[in-house]
Design a protein around this nucleic acid. Sequence first.
DNA 1: TGATGTGAATAACTTCACAGCG
DNA 2: CGCTGTGAAGTTATTCACATCA
Lengths: 210, 210
Amino acid sequence: MQKKDRRIPEETVRRLSLYLRTLRFMENKGVQVISSERLTKHLNITGAQARKDLTYFGSFGQPGVGYNVNRLRKKIEEILGLDHSWNVILVGCGKLGAALLAYPGFRRFGFRITAAFDNNPDKVGRTIGKVPIITDQKMEEFIRKNDVKVAIITAPAEAAQEIARRLAESGISAILNFAPRYLVIPEKIQIKSVDMAMELESLVYYLKNH
Amino acid sequence: MQKKDRRIPEETVRRLSLYLRTLRFMENKGVQVISSERLTKHLNITGAQARKDLTYFGSFGQPGVGYNVNRLRKKIEEILGLDHSWNVILVGCGKLGAALLAYPGFRRFGFRITAAFDNNPDKVGRTIGKVPIITDQKMEEFIRKNDVKVAIITAPAEAAQEIARRLAESGISAILNFAPRYLVIPEKIQIKSVDMAMELESLVYYLKNH
DNA sequence: TGATGTGAATAACTTCACAGCG
DNA sequence: CGCTGTGAAGTTATTCACATCA
């Protein structure tokens, strides 16, 4: 997919996701062609930036015209690996876990949460939004049997490291972590952490200094 | 706080938050002094980077020794504006909103969610984790009366823009947005958006390409 | 000796500016 | 004519390397 051995800036990948959101919105509205300027108008990104981002992966536009919305949407989905669906599991069925299980945004775009795990016997056996809650003792087995590659951790901070270790050992390749803890995992596993208190912390900094 | 007119990289502010997490952890464990290398060991950040980040704001370390954990923790809290507590409101009491209301991480570090708003009469009047749910018609009034400066949006995407507009008009200075929509707001208002589907999207990209 | 603080060097990212093409 | 694609220029961020000080 990616051109030669050029390194892709991490920010470029993140922006691709943003373009995708706009493209889906536009496609829904029936827009067929879009310029780089219009694509980025409401994203605090310049048109030049979008063009540069896209050329890391190929030439998808038509000079003098713009980008075909449907084609570019599909291209970006292909680049990101969203052209097929992903089996995802979620570990930790507290309030945040339950909220994510019910979140429509995942399912809509190719992420299918197939099972949730918890160590609380009261929760095991129930379902949240059609997703069954399974005892965490069966987690490894489930991962192997169903070839799961992506996991979301919504367990308490104290439990997160041990869960991550077990996930890594069972063959998970990517983790989205919501526990406010740095997780030590093998290099080859992709991880991204979302720490909501941290987001607020950097936000208020700018309150003082602007 | 900030030295002269030097511009602070956005990433520096974000890292400050990370250092803070480590420092709090270390302080709890009774560690009194820490080197830049140890501070960043589990953060994928180099010691040099941390030292550079910190010198934007002053000289807090002792050559040959390191940083006093307690002193540096307080300094960073002061830099970020966490040396006093912030009144925060939350708008949209769906599952995610409810999860955040119950999230202990906010309260622990100086963020006090004082009220939640919703337009659903069935929810209004109830409380979630001691936070009262108020009709969104009284939102503006509440913000003004209580001098609220920070708001969290956990409403559906369709409603987010209108809510943001109303928040902006009532004098809110910072918004943490969980709705997957770009929000148009006055320049002077700080905004940070967390889009969980987007996080997953960029995560799976690296699955394909590493 | 050991770790900070910091200019200088390097690397990474973004913007500019325009040739080229439909 | 308008907009893409892209080298070149400009800007910003990170790493290096070492003087300095306890």
